[in-house]
């Protein structure tokens, strides 16, 4: 099993699933379309990555998405965090995209089996990053309430950001912390938001130790597939 592809696939699927939960409920019609669009990109990335991950063992994308339990998922804790309000969703997307966008661009330039997938994903993540950054700036520098909500979201999610930088396998590439810092600090400054300085950081997603939220997400996502073993959809 290609553990690297599997973990990146899990990140994309779980975040894509979270965004898809917004569909029909977003603050404005334009955002319904945008969030669905990003979700579609991420689910598309997950499909390619799962296919790559399971190629050696003969597992297809649906087997990997629907028939593993939560302890077998190796996604980042950050992406399984619940949607919360729009500020939480945007902040989560921003923190993730600020890492994964340079990551895809870097790995696309290597000989990694992920490179072809990364080349396509990089184009998508560039848009995701721009969309989230623009919104974070609007929310941070919008009204007193939106500023408060954005700052709260940032403070809540920050302890899940160190995990972004952990290489998944020895041959994985790592985006330098400074790259992410440069992007994040510039946006936070424009958004008039304060960079949090938490006393601790949470880890565990890569080892299958998740927050309690993931089990519920999977229970919903996998229910129909699992209740009809062997069926073709």
């Amino acid at each position: 099993m290609n553990r690297l592809a599997l973990a990146r696939a899990d990140d994309a699927l779980i975040l894509g699933h979270r965004l898809s939960e917004w569909c029909g409920h977003a603050p404005a019609l334009e955002e319904d379309l945008a969030l669905a669009n990003i979700a579609l990109d991420l689910i598309g990335q997950a499909r390619s990555l799962y296919t790559l991950a399971g190629a050696a063992t003969g597992h297809d994308e649906d087997h990997l998405a629907y028939l593993r339990d939560e302890r077998a998922f190796t996604n980042l804790l950050l992406v399984e965090r619940p949607n919360g309000d729009f500020a939480v969703t945007i902040t989560r997307q921003f923190l993730y995209s600020a890492y994964i966008d340079p990551y895809w661009r870097s790995i696309a330039a290597t000989q990694s089996p992920l490179a072809p997938i990364a080349a396509k994903a990089a184009k998508e993540s560039a848009y995701h990053l721009r969309h989230a950054a623009e919104w974070l700036i609007r929310l941070g520098d919008g009204t007193a309430e939106s500023h408060r909500r954005a700052q709260t979201a940032l403070t809540q999610l920050w302890p899940y950001t160190d995990e972004l930088f952990d290489p998944i396998t020895p041959d994985d590439i790592a985006v330098p912390r400074e790259t992410w810092d440069t992007t994040v600090n510039a946006v936070l400054a424009e958004a008039t938001l304060t960079r949090p300085d938490p006393k601790w950081q949470h880890r565990g997603g890569r080892l299958g130790t998740h927050t309690e939220h993931l089990g519920h997400l999977l229970a919903e996502m996998q229910s129909l597939h699992r209740s009809n073993p062997g069926a073709t959809w």
């Binding site: 699927l13 699933h17 898809s20 939960e21 569909c23 029909g24 409920h25 019609l29 319904d32 379309l33 669905a36 669009n37 979700a39 579609l40 689910i43 598309g44 997950a46 499909r47 799962y50 994308e61 649906d62 998405a65 629907y66 919903e220 996502m221 229910s223 129909l224 597939h225 009809n228 069926a231 959809w233």
Partner: peptide, 24 residues
């Protein structure tokens, strides 16, 4: 939208999400 989060395969999930997005 009620079935997006429960779609039985990733292909169906993507297609349904794209469809609902079209409606929007």
């Amino acid at each position: 939208g009620n079935w997006i989060t429960r779609a039985p395969s990733l292909r169906r999930k993507a297609a349904l999400l794209a469809k609902v997005q079209d409606e929007g």
